[in-house]
Simulated scan of single mutants.
Amino acid sequence: MRVGVVGATGAVGREMLRILEERSFPVDELIPLASERSAGTRVRFQGEDHTVGVLSLDALRGADVALSSCGSTAAKSWIPQAAEAGTVCIDNSSAFRMEPDVALTIPEVNPESLEGRPRIIAVPNCTIITALMAVAPLHRAAGLQSLILSSYQSVSGAGRRGVTELAEQIEKLHGMEEDLAHPDPSALPVGEVFGKTIAYNVVAKVDAFDPETGFTFEEIKIQREARKILSLPELDVAATAVRVPVPVGHSVSIHATFLRPIGPDEARELLSAAPGVEVRDDPANGVYPSPLEAAGRDEVLVGRIRQSPGRPDALLLFSCGDNLRKGAALNAVQIAEHMFATSK
């Protein structure tokens, strides 16, 4: 099988290469591609070095599948034409997610979206993947009515520049921890990526603000994508997205209400049987999810499962997932596995 990886030199692209190899995806020919700036870089795959080419339709001609992590603007410039030429395009950007004829897929949650073998499939926002891996099994059993989400998103969600900005600020502030009790705001390091100091801080802004609603566009994506993935166009959902000084791993605090009563014991049973989910819910013994424990893992970790006070139809949960793996690269490879297993 001829497999293209677009954005092969980025964090998600390199993770896609790693996961293709780990999962023994049938790659007969690898086509690693990137922008002109990154072309010529060498990437390692199956024990061999491969030279990264410049992204073009000619370079992808004849590819069976293309896994893309190149940003929305770039994705729009080539994916429709490549799909028309016969390549299955699995895109990590937000470019096509809300298009009515494009599948928005988490294979463990809505595999039916891949029926009919669409040529363009969008990978959802990494935060909503982390949330819905925990919520969908409960929805199937009890019928989801509403969602309130607060996310704690790692700096790698903003790319390598975000990780670098955090590391540089930690280095600058090292040894000044006591001073941060009475900081001089003008002396704090501020970078281009996050707009406020991210080291020793949290930033209640992921993406730009929508002036009409006050939500960020990240929060709006979460709302819209949850409705599409679950086929619940009237779902009552609201989100607050926060950036935290964690290298890898997104976390989501979830308040979910259902159409019937559902308790923590039933929720644990349902989640324990759900593919791609690992229940970590024994707080008395120090067992509950954290993003560092989720980093490098394929499973989404779910815990802190509680009944909402006075609400037998509502639960509180805490979910953590690796935003580079299940939140992006792994989900893309799983879609490819599903598509090509179905075609056999």
Score class of each variant (00 low, 15 high):
V88L: 09
K196P: 01
D91L: 01
V5F: 06
V102E: 06
R37P: 02
P261M: 08
T9K: 08
P309S: 15
R227S: 03
I222H: 03
D58C: 02
P233Y: 01
D49G: 04
G286I: 04
V190K: 07
A314P: 06
A122V: 12
E84F: 11
M133Q: 13
Q223K: 11
R2P: 08
G159W: 14
L149Y: 10
H182D: 00
R260S: 15
A142E: 01
A208M: 00
E115F: 13
I79W: 05
E112V: 03
V163Y: 06
R140K: 11
T127V: 11
A122D: 06
S68P: 03
L67P: 05
Q153R: 09
D49V: 03
I262H: 12
M98D: 05
L315R: 14
G191A: 03
E299S: 09
A39I: 04
E165K: 13
T216S: 15
A74N: 08
A267I: 04
G214P: 09
V52K: 03
L166K: 14
L138E: 12
P309Q: 14
I120N: 04
K221N: 10
D281E: 12
P26M: 12
V302F: 03
A34Q: 09
K76I: 01
E218H: 13
E337A: 05
F258S: 08
A336G: 10
P264E: 12
V155T: 14
L104Q: 04
L30I: 01
T9L: 07
L188M: 08
R140V: 00
A34Y: 10
E165L: 14
P291E: 12
E177V: 15
M339G: 00
M98R: 06
V193Q: 08
S308L: 14
T105Y: 05
L132E: 05
A295R: 11
S24Q: 10
D313T: 14
M339C: 15
E219H: 02
P247K: 04
